[in-house]
């Protein structure tokens, strides 16, 4: 008598595939950083050897004090009033409005970094419609202590 063999259906077992991929997902989740990928940028000015002279230029001077408060052109001013003050610095007759004067941001050595960032952020938003709606972003300078000392030295004047 001929016995008929019952053949099992061919199958690739995929149940363990999910386990492997879950392990990979856990690896990616543990090693990746979600939030810390954005920040305030500033391009470092390029050196221009043809402009070695220092020229006096009217500017807006923002200072960050050690307690985290601010002075603008030597007058105490809260962050929320920066826009109102800078409105007076808009170039006369410019339409759309433009502020061509550079803004120098100078934090005190003991000022908290967070206060400097708050001021920098506020100044970077001045071109937005809910601030001054300027035609272009403000020209913000963030000189370092060494650069300031070098400038005063080049002028031959003792630092105030």
């Amino acid at each position: 008598m001929k016995l008929q063999r019952r053949l099992e259906k061919a199958e690739i077992f995929t149940g363990s595939m999910a386990d492997v991929t879950f392990l990979l997902i856990i690896y990616f989740m543990v090693t990746m950083a979600f939030s810390a990928t954005k920040g305030l940028d500033f391009a470092v000015p390029k050196e221009d050897p043809s402009r070695s002279e220092i020229q006096a230029e009217e500017s807006v001077f923002v200072k960050v004090l050690p307690d985290g408060s601010y002075t603008v052109d030597n007058r105490p001013l809260p962050l929320s009033s920066f826009a109102d003050y800078l409105k007076t610095k808009i170039d006369p007759g410019s339409n759309p409005p433009v502020i061509s004067k550079p803004v120098i941001l100078r934090p005190d050595a003991d000022a908290p970094y967070g206060a400097m960032m708050a001021a920098f952020d506020e100044l970077r938003q001045m071109h937005l419609p809910d601030r001054l709606n300027l035609a272009k972003e403000l020209n913000i300078a963030l000189p370092t202590q060494r650069e300031i000392e070098a400038t005063w030295g080049a002028l031959g004047v003792a630092m105030p």
Partner: peptide, 12 residues
């Protein structure tokens, strides 16, 4: 940098 860092460090 931490927000409470003294600016002098960041400046350097």
């Amino acid at each position: 940098a931490d927000k409470d860092t003294r600016y002098q460090v960041v400046d350097k």
